[in-house]
Amino acid sequence: MTPDPVLVFLAMGAVTYVPRWFPLFALANRTLPRILLEWLELLPPAILSALIAPALVTAGCPKHFQLLTPEFCVAVPTFLVAWKTRSLALTVLFGMFLFWIAGMFLQ
């Protein structure tokens, strides 16, 4: 039997919401130990790299290592533009443009 989609979505919503909610509820408006603050300070660069890196240098299913994906080739100059300009708008537009052009060449 197939479960009712609405029921599935409700359950999915619940298990997605609780991990989003708990740390905010437990940690906001509190004085935290210094060591935890230092760790939390390093967490964002760690999370962002963990999101970015596999998307750039792995491909296929099951995943395999592949250095010169189109994403990687566009990401390098995009990273440099972000570094030089410090502008989110310029970086996003530059990255999109380059990826668009790269897509045309690869077809």
Binding site: S49, L51, I52, T78, F79, A82, T91
Partner: peptide, 9 residues
């Protein structure tokens, strides 16, 4: 991806 790269920078 471009947004994440910039925010990483």
């Amino acid at each position: 991806m471009a947004m994440f790269l910039c925010l990483l920078v």
